[in-house]
Write a protein that binds this DNA or RNA. Sequence first.
DNA 1: ACTATTCTGTCTACTATTGAACAATTCTTA
DNA 2: TAAGAATTGTTCAATAGTAGACAGAATAGT
Lengths: 200, 200
Amino acid sequence: MLNNVNYVDRRITKSKNALKEALLVLLLEENIDHITITDIVNEAYLNRGTFYKNYQSKEEILDEVLEDVTADLTKAFRAPYQDQQRLAVKSLKASTVTIFDHVAKYSTFYTLIFKKNRYPEFQHTISETLKSLHLQDFSNISFNAKINREFLACYRAYATFGVLKEWVHDGFKYSAGYMADQLVEILCSSQGGDIYRVVI
Amino acid sequence: MLNNVNYVDRRITKSKNALKEALLVLLLEENIDHITITDIVNEAYLNRGTFYKNYQSKEEILDEVLEDVTADLTKAFRAPYQDQQRLAVKSLKASTVTIFDHVAKYSTFYTLIFKKNRYPEFQHTISETLKSLHLQDFSNISFNAKINREFLACYRAYATFGVLKEWVHDGFKYSAGYMADQLVEILCSSQGGDIYRVVI
DNA sequence: ACTATTCTGTCTACTATTGAACAATTCTTA
DNA sequence: TAAGAATTGTTCAATAGTAGACAGAATAGT
């Protein structure tokens, strides 16, 4: 009767999350090669058998973390213009900017890659994701025909990336809400008149 | 073979902790009477059956939280003189002061009682615990015969209590480490010459 | 007062996680 | 290189947690 499952059992979700967070915490201190499966399950407060039922290797966990992060980053970035046809920078509300909440949610991951400078390829994935979002979602990103839209998307993506990175690097010195306020101010002062056509 | 258990299954620990934290989070927003069992298990991301397997009522959870907090508070308070016969205030190391880490660990609970001013009787339990610790652990707390040791213990307990409360009330504005530094400075300046006989 | 809705407490069949044990393998380090 | 220790990957029976269903109680809305 319960043979055909189209839901994910909460136990699986929780065990996997615990294993992911545990590995990230351990990675803050040492290289992945020096981390044993036993270390991970101890940190995750799980039986070793549970690791093997959910994953084949340590690396598989990391892959899934990156999937989680990019998916959630995308969702957070899009939050201000979710279900909108247009995005007027001038009337952007800071409360709809959730990208800093996203970073806080994955603080261990971002601390690992931004502060400890581990897995530089992950940094690249983050910035590439931001660039793609600018490029794909804002069809008319460049109003000036002389400006290559690829370059503009790159410019804007790295600008945001830098703010996120500095925030993490300084140990989340300010609240996510304050950071959102600041970002909105910056966007308004530089692109206040822009209205982007949204294409999700 | 597994009939006689002298350990606590990790699943029980985790489920109970999730239910405790969930109830506290919900209590930040509304009165316990308006919180349903369904609310709690949703917040805890657990099946309702799990609630009933571990607890009889919402109130039972709260009782257990208070037990947890007082036990951990006691352990944290004693950390600086654990396994010592004497405690010389002058040579007290801030790194051994873990009472602020304890409060951070139970931040939801302390925010509830200190910031939201819910369950004033719990505040009393905390201050009473601190008073008992001074009184029981420091056999020679009062060096001046004219000073009633009960009153002195009360005075010192509430002093600490106040610092904890203010810290929570201001939303954990400073780090636990900084707070420990400050407390040690205050203790040194006022009781720097004291050496307490420890009786645990 | 009546009704629709939510919440409760309990139940069932199923399954993910559990502690423990084990031989095989890999690391230490002497 | 040899011996000792730690880690691995797998197994087992036991059990806590799972989704879902249910009837009855409490609650809200009209």
